[in-house]
């Protein structure tokens, strides 16, 4: 039996596990040390590992990401925090032009074993510049791995896998999930990148979701079960690598695919997944694939507006209902 901890605590647990194991793992970011992180996700790590390994920076996202890159090229395994995922846009050059491409451009001379942590997604009423789900932006850049855990156990296990991976991993922590709790395994926990998990078995419908949306998909599945519709819920967990085989296996069983995406509509990860399933599972489908997403709008701040924008349990259930015909 493992311990029950919050998603927020799991971040520090996962990082501490890796830092204790490997002295080349170092952290940098704004307010991550003495303040324990703006989201308090790194609380206690400065005390445990000291200021040389948990290093506070100025508000300089380019400098933070560049430092992580240069350190990764020269033998360290840095974990950099970008705080609100929206800020990826002020350091996107380092991520998209430098980090993602260095191995390729140098024909493998350079390795970039680094992790970039982001506080991703909405639900906290922060408005359009502090609430975005940026996973689809990152997924679009060749050379990056993109991970979005939905449970405390996955935060620990996927963090460990990300730190140990020899490629740059974009690790998107869901801000809305920080206060949620779950059990984490006893002892060292290392998961595998690029593997989806079936969170609920079902025979009638496949719902693929990511991060915060996994929990809404599961709640919608319960409502639908009461009405006689048996939903299978797949937690994608990772966009790159993308676990197509788990999704395709589920779709071949159910014949129906719904995606639940917090990102705005256009070019969301669900569009890529729908395209793959349409190409490879066309004759297994009994109905059109349907994507349930935030509309193609910036996220608004007010409770009633943000709630109306991001897919809710009710909207997921109702769209699945109408998709069943």
């Amino acid at each position: 039996m493992g311990q029950v901890i919050t998603y927020r605590e799991a971040v520090a647990v996962g990082l501490a596990q890796e830092m204790a194991r490997d002295p080349s793992v170092v952290m940098i970011g704004e307010d991550i040390g003495a303040a324990g992180g703006v989201f308090k996700a790194t609380a206690g790590l400065l005390e445990k590992f000291g200021p040389e390994r948990v290093r506070d920076t100025p508000i300089s996202e380019q400098a933070i990401l560049g430092a992580a890159m240069g350190a990764a090229m020269t033998g360290l395994r840095p974990v950099a925090e970008v705080m609100f995922a929206d800020f990826v846009s002020v350091c996107h050059d380092v991520i998209a032009n430098q980090i993602a491409k260095a191995r390729y451009m140098t024909n493998g001379q350079v390795a970039l074993p680094l992790v970039v942590r982001f506080g991703n997604g909405g639900g906290l009423r922060f408005g359009a510049q502090h609430s975005q789900s940026v996973e689809s932006w990152l997924m679009a850049v060749p050379g990056l791995k993109v991970v979005v855990p939905s449970t405390p156990a996955d935060v620990v296990g996927l963090m460990a896998a990300a730190v140990r991976d020899d490629d740059p991993v974009m690790f998107l922590e869901e801000k809305a999930l920080y206060p949620t709790s779950g059990e984490v395994p006893e002892g060292e926990h290392v998961d595998q990148l690029g593997t989806a998990r079936v969170r609920r078995d079902g025979a009638d419908v496949t719902i693929v979701a990511l991060g915060t949306m996994v929990h809404r998909a599961l709640a919608a599945a319960e409502q639908l079960a009461a009405e006689g519709t048996d939903c299978e819920v797949v937690d994608l967990r990772s966009l790159v690598p993308l676990d197509v085989s788990t999704v395709a296996g589920s779709v071949r069983k159910t014949g129906r695919l719904f995606t639940v995406e917090e990102n705005p509509r256009l070019c969301g990860w669900g569009a890529e997944l729908a395209s793959i399933v349409a190409e490879e599972c066309f004759y297994d489908l009994d109905a059109p694939i349907r994507r349930i997403t935030t509309p193609h709008v910036p996220l608004p701040a007010a409770d009633s507006l943000e709630d109306a924008a991001i897919p809710s349990v009710e909207r997921v259930a109702s769209e699945v209902r109408s998709g069943l015909g």
């Binding site: 560049g66 240069g70 090229m73 380092v94 430098q98």
Partner: peptide, 19 residues
């Protein structure tokens, strides 16, 4: 990309300092 590598150079220096 003009300027980007100054930040990356810092990273190599940080690594040397840490090691």
């Amino acid at each position: 990309i003009v300027g980007a590598h100054l930040t990356i150079a810092n990273g190599a220096a940080w690594s040397a300092q840490y090691r």
